[in-house]
Simulated scan of single mutants.
Amino acid sequence: MSKLKAAVFASGAGSNFQAIIEKRDLACEIALLICDKQNAGVIEIAKKHQIPTFIFSAKEFASKQAFEEKIVSELRKIEVSWIFLAGYMRIVGSTLLQAFPGKIVNIHPSFLPNFPGKDAIEQAYQAGVNTTGVTVHYIDEGIDTGPIIAQESVAIYSEDTEETLKKRIQEVEHELYPNVINQLLQQSEG
């Protein structure tokens, strides 16, 4: 039986993408990277691992619907079943949501519902709270409002800097996300 195919959407350096593709027993094939930044570090990681990449610039399309239709077309060509967001800095619109209902998952660097949206680590650090965390959740029309799949808390220590906190959060992300992806894929096949 062939493995399910998944796409990863990313906009940045690609540390979660790297963690996903390096998981030894990953229950799917990462068949495509979708990236909206021409110079994102994640593109080099994809090249190194020989993963095809679709790079787009939103400005080249008339609307969000237009670029999402193009993305859906690319995903359908290679029969992608799941989408995993890994630092994709765009809000997913209804075109993608309708094409992949219940099959788009995101990782967010906070213990949702606390600190949704951009700069979640900075938000938590500035708020002076004792804990934050990592959340894996389904995508819906809101910003980090979809149903939560898994969470893990991360303590914020008095000696922490934003950078040390970010490093600890990423360590949790890199462990949690690939494991949750496997659980979801196994449940969907079972």
Results as ranks from 00 to 15, higher is better:
2 S>G: 13
2 S>K: 15
3 K>E: 11
3 K>G: 07
5 K>Q: 15
6 A>W: 02
6 A>K: 02
6 A>D: 02
8 V>I: 15
8 V>G: 03
9 F>V: 03
9 F>L: 10
9 F>R: 00
10 A>R: 03
11 S>I: 08
15 S>T: 15
15 S>Y: 09
16 N>K: 01
20 I>T: 03
21 I>C: 07
25 D>V: 05
25 D>W: 06
30 I>M: 10
31 A>F: 10
31 A>M: 11
32 L>D: 00
32 L>E: 01
45 I>M: 10
47 K>A: 11
50 Q>F: 13
51 I>C: 10
52 P>R: 13
52 P>S: 14
53 T>P: 05
54 F>G: 05
56 F>R: 11
59 K>T: 14
60 E>I: 02
60 E>K: 06
65 Q>I: 06
70 K>A: 15
70 K>P: 05
70 K>Y: 15
71 I>N: 04
72 V>Q: 09
73 S>L: 10
74 E>Y: 14
75 L>F: 09
75 L>Q: 08
75 L>Y: 09
76 R>H: 12
76 R>C: 09
76 R>P: 03
77 K>W: 11
78 I>S: 10
79 E>M: 10
80 V>F: 14
80 V>C: 14
86 A>D: 00
87 G>P: 00
88 Y>P: 00
89 M>E: 08
89 M>N: 07
89 M>A: 08
93 G>T: 06
100 F>G: 01
101 P>N: 10
103 K>P: 02
103 K>C: 13
104 I>C: 04
104 I>Q: 01
109 P>N: 09
113 P>D: 06
115 F>R: 00
117 G>W: 11
120 A>P: 04
121 I>S: 04
122 E>G: 14
122 E>S: 14
123 Q>R: 07
124 A>P: 01
131 T>P: 03
134 V>L: 02
135 T>H: 04
136 V>P: 00
140 D>L: 13
142 G>K: 11
143 I>Q: 10
144 D>I: 01
144 D>L: 08
147 P>S: 06
147 P>N: 07
151 Q>R: 09
151 Q>T: 07
152 E>T: 09
152 E>I: 05
154 V>E: 02
155 A>R: 11
159 E>L: 14
160 D>L: 13
165 L>G: 01
165 L>D: 01
166 K>F: 14
166 K>A: 15
170 Q>P: 00
175 E>R: 13
176 L>V: 09
177 Y>S: 00
178 P>C: 08
178 P>V: 07
180 V>Y: 04
181 I>C: 06
182 N>F: 06
182 N>T: 04
183 Q>Y: 11
185 L>Q: 05
187 Q>C: 11
190 G>D: 13
